[in-house]
Simulated assay, not measured.
Amino acid sequence: MTPEELQAARDRTVPDVVAGGLRVLFCGINPSLMTGATGHHFAHPGNRFWPVLHRSGFTPRQLKPDEQTELLRYGLGITNVVARATARADELSAEEFREGGKILAAKVEDLRPQWLAVVGVTAYRTAFRRPSARIGPQDHTIGDARVWALPNPSGLNAHWTAQTMAEEYGRLLAHVDPDTVRTIAGP
């Protein structure tokens, strides 16, 4: 991907990977330029989402970003707090996060996942006005969905290793009902 191609992806949106009744709807902060350019969530090579998802037990093998629709087979989906692609999350305003939180809440109420897993506690704090939120299960719900804040899998998040992230994602998995009804077409 050339620098020009990446810059051309600025402000693009990427379609969600969703269906009704998911076990977990993972919610990123916003698409990176690489995600905007490829149309695949968590596409930057330094992003640890896909390896962590596998290591934690959510998927039986490590999926690649271009296999993102395979998540639906496992009752998983992906969306973002803010839809537009940027080079860095700090390019987003608090107002964008709060507006994104409102849009996300409506989406969650419509899709009715068992869990909403926000991968980035700072984005969660801002979008939902929960300044003291910590990694882990949260004390509120959105519709019927319970909320869990997870560490951001960006390679820039050096406070968390792939292993410690996988352990935290695994804590969430231990709370997910494997019999959650899904409305997903296809095998």
Rank of each mutant, 00 (worst) to 15 (best):
V176R: 01
V147M: 06
H41K: 02
V147K: 06
A94W: 10
D179Y: 08
P60C: 07
A133G: 05
G46E: 06
T183K: 05
F26C: 00
P65G: 11
A185L: 08
P178Q: 02
G120K: 01
R125T: 10
L92W: 12
A19M: 08
G39C: 14
R61P: 08
G36R: 13
E4A: 10
E5R: 07
Y74I: 03
Q7V: 02
L25Y: 01
T161F: 00
A145F: 11
V181N: 02
I184Q: 05
E96D: 11
H140N: 04
L6G: 03
N157V: 09
G57I: 12
A83T: 03
N30G: 11
F58R: 02
A85H: 05
A8H: 04
T79D: 07
I29H: 09
R98V: 14
E4I: 09
G101M: 12
P3D: 06
A87R: 10
G39W: 15
A133H: 06
G77S: 07
V14W: 01
V181F: 05
T161K: 09
I103N: 11
E99D: 13
L53N: 00
Y74Q: 12
G28Q: 04
P51F: 00
P131T: 10
R146L: 05
E95C: 11
S132N: 10
M1F: 09
G155F: 03
S132E: 13
R125K: 15
F97Q: 14
E70L: 13
W50G: 09
L172I: 07
L92A: 12
P178Y: 03
V14T: 02
H44N: 13
E4Y: 07
P187W: 07
E99K: 12
V121L: 14
Q138N: 02
D177G: 07
R12Y: 02
G136S: 04
D139Y: 00
H140T: 06
G57Y: 11
D139I: 00
T13W: 04
E109F: 15
D144S: 08
P113M: 03
F49T: 05
L63E: 11
S56T: 09
R61T: 13
A87G: 07
G28K: 01
D179R: 03
T122R: 15
K102S: 12
M34Y: 12
W160A: 09
V81I: 13
L76P: 04
I103R: 15
Q68Y: 09
N30R: 12
R10V: 06
M1E: 05
G39T: 12
T122M: 13
W115Q: 00
P51M: 04
A43K: 05
G20R: 12
